Amino acid sequence: MTSATDFIFETNKAKHQTVEQGAFTWSAPSNIALVKYWGKKEHQIPANPSLSFTLNRCKTCTTLQFVRKEEKGISFDLLFEGQPKEAFKPKIQKFFERIVSYCPYIADYHFTIDTTNTFPHSSGIASSASGMAALAVNIMSVERALNPAMTQDYFLKKASFLARLGSGSACRSITGSVVVWGEQTDVDGSSDLYGIEAPFEVHANFSNYQDVILLVDKGEKQVSSTVGHDLMHNHPFAQERFKQAHQNLSQLKNILQTGNLDQFVALVESEALTLHAMMMTSMPYFILMKPNTLQIIERIWTFREKTQIPVCFTLDAGANVHVLFPEKDHPAVLAFIREELSKFCQNEHFIEDKMGNGTLMIQ
């Protein structure tokens, strides 16, 4: 698939079925980028490729009910944990408007979307990736009901394509434990249009890799990711950063294949700090890290030097810290987090997670 037009649903195909109503339920996880995507072009196209670990426990569960209606047009009700949530509706409305040209059948139905997160809504974890991924696979289930001949490969690619139009990073939550999004010459099948499961074997050192999320700040970010991405358009270091991301992704691909944990630590932490350096050097400039973020980083460095355990951190566009480490080091690192790092978290709150595999159909 090299063109967005490949994802347009053809309404006049004789093999398509008529479906009056139905319901599907899917879960979709969040993900954490190791090579960061920061800056985008029109239509949610990334300015540079990214690579992420899919998470396992931090996820959104969404039920999509649909019933055919007489008048064409976008029509939906939105529930969050069973209760109407008007504040979320504009984002879903915009998403439907973006995808209706690829999924014209959505204008034929009224949808009821009921969504819930396995993590607290105020936990400071962005739910847009998991939420949009869960909605995208539900919509693709409707499309598969209309077109039962659809292949699984097409289902997953178009689901990722649709999720990207809701939230860029959501395209990395559809399938696979290691996902690449964005064209990269040495990653076969990579695309700006959707994420793909890494087409190479990942070393056993990274099997069930652990991610403990330290919730430093549960509040809303001062600067949204959308605004941050836009500030890359005139950023003095943007082109060098985009070039660096390609180089780092090639290096990380090699690291994941060889299992070199020391190189993994160095590259992942450098990527995290580079992301925040771009924020601090944009105009207007901004800082999303908090004092406790830096306290945690310094203690991770001290602990790693003292114990030689290859624990490292990464950050997304916020103050919270993802602590990454091999499964075999779980007891020692968790004790360290409880004893030393949890005091820097809001209400000493952290979430234990690990590498997962993407979306799951529940019913």
Results as ranks from 00 to 15, higher is better:
1 M>C: 14
2 T>S: 14
6 D>V: 06
7 F>P: 00
8 I>D: 06
8 I>L: 11
11 T>V: 07
14 A>E: 13
20 E>G: 09
20 E>H: 11
21 Q>K: 12
27 S>N: 03
33 A>D: 02
34 L>R: 05
35 V>C: 06
36 K>L: 06
36 K>C: 06
38 W>E: 02
39 G>F: 05
47 A>M: 15
47 A>L: 14
51 L>M: 15
53 F>S: 04
59 K>Y: 04
66 F>E: 02
69 K>Q: 09
74 I>W: 00
74 I>Q: 03
75 S>C: 14
80 F>E: 11
81 E>W: 10
93 Q>A: 15
93 Q>L: 13
101 S>Q: 12
104 P>Y: 08
111 F>M: 06
112 T>D: 01
118 T>M: 09
138 N>F: 01
139 I>R: 02
139 I>F: 07
145 A>M: 12
147 N>K: 14
148 P>E: 10
149 A>I: 13
150 M>E: 10
157 K>P: 00
157 K>L: 15
158 K>Q: 15
159 A>D: 04
159 A>P: 02
161 F>P: 00
163 A>H: 01
167 S>V: 07
167 S>C: 10
173 S>P: 01
175 T>W: 01
178 V>D: 01
178 V>M: 04
184 Q>S: 12
187 V>I: 15
188 D>W: 01
192 D>N: 15
192 D>G: 12
192 D>E: 14
194 Y>N: 03
194 Y>W: 12
205 N>V: 06
216 V>Y: 04
217 D>N: 15
218 K>W: 06
222 Q>C: 09
225 S>H: 10
235 H>K: 10
237 F>E: 09
237 F>P: 00
238 A>N: 03
241 R>T: 06
241 R>H: 14
241 R>P: 02
242 F>P: 02
242 F>T: 04
251 Q>P: 00
257 Q>E: 14
257 Q>A: 13
259 G>C: 06
259 G>V: 05
260 N>F: 13
261 L>Y: 09
261 L>C: 11
265 V>Q: 03
267 L>W: 05
271 E>H: 03
272 A>N: 13
273 L>V: 11
275 L>R: 01
282 S>G: 07
283 M>V: 08
284 P>N: 15
287 I>S: 11
287 I>T: 11
289 M>Q: 06
291 P>M: 11
295 Q>E: 08
309 I>T: 03
310 P>D: 09
311 V>A: 07
311 V>E: 01
313 F>D: 01
314 T>N: 05
317 A>C: 04
317 A>E: 00
318 G>D: 03
324 L>S: 07
328 K>D: 12
331 P>T: 09
331 P>K: 11
333 V>A: 10
334 L>R: 04
335 A>M: 10
335 A>P: 03
336 F>P: 00
341 L>H: 02
343 K>S: 14
344 F>V: 07
345 C>Y: 00
347 N>A: 15
354 K>W: 12
356 G>I: 05
358 G>Q: 02
360 L>Q: 13
361 M>P: 04
362 I>F: 09
363 Q>Y: 10
